[in-house]
Simulated scan of single mutants.
Amino acid sequence: MGTMYYGGSAMPIRIADRALAHLKVVVATKLRRSESFTVSWQHADDEPPGRSTLWVHPSIALRFVFEDPQPPQLNRAWIEELAKSANATGGIALGAEDLG
């Protein structure tokens, strides 16, 4: 399970390593272009039920921490799906990887 730290918050956002690796690619691309967007996800099973949304902005510090030292092989279709949603009004809705 990976973690993402956003802004000055010491509270980590826990996201599976594989999903976090794909999210990182899309987030880095958007921020490199100085584009803001939202990212939403459902809370992990061991957290209180619910979902969260972040407004991601290039001026706010962001750190990705991965449990696995080896990066996964990335699924181009999933990256493209996340990138497309990042450009939509609703922003990125991080869900399960579509392997089909």
Rank of each mutant, 00 (worst) to 15 (best):
V26I: 08
T89G: 15
V56N: 07
E47N: 01
G2N: 09
P58R: 01
R18N: 15
V39F: 00
E80Q: 12
L54E: 03
P71V: 13
I79E: 11
K84W: 15
A77P: 01
S34I: 01
K84Q: 12
G100I: 00
T3A: 10
S40K: 08
N75V: 07
F64W: 11
M4C: 00
G95M: 06
A21K: 00
G90V: 08
M4S: 05
I15S: 06
A19W: 05
P72L: 00
T89M: 15
T38S: 14
L82V: 12
T89H: 11
V26S: 10
N87I: 04
F37L: 11
E47Y: 01
R51K: 13
M1A: 06
L94I: 03
V56Q: 00
V56Y: 09
L94N: 11
Y5M: 12
D45Q: 02
D68F: 13
A10Y: 14
A28V: 12
G95L: 02
S34T: 09
E67K: 10
W41S: 01
V25P: 07
D45E: 15
A28F: 04
M4R: 00
Q70A: 09
T38A: 03
G100C: 02
V56D: 00
F37A: 05
T53C: 03
A19R: 14
A28E: 15
V39C: 00
S52Y: 03
T38I: 11
F37H: 12
V65D: 05
K84G: 07
P69N: 07
L94S: 06
S59D: 12
I15K: 13
K24Q: 14
K24H: 12
V39P: 04
A96W: 09
E97H: 07
A93M: 11
R51G: 10
A28M: 15
W55T: 07
D98Q: 15
E35Y: 08
E81F: 13
P72N: 03
A10C: 08
P58A: 04
P49M: 12
S34Q: 13
E80A: 13
A77N: 08
I79K: 04
L99Y: 11
I79M: 03
D17Q: 01
R63P: 15
L94C: 11
R51Q: 14
H22G: 08
D68I: 10
A21G: 03
K24C: 04
R33I: 02
R33G: 07
K84A: 14
K30W: 06
E97G: 01
E67S: 13
E47L: 05
Q70D: 15
R32H: 13
G91S: 08
L31Y: 05
D46R: 06
L62Q: 08
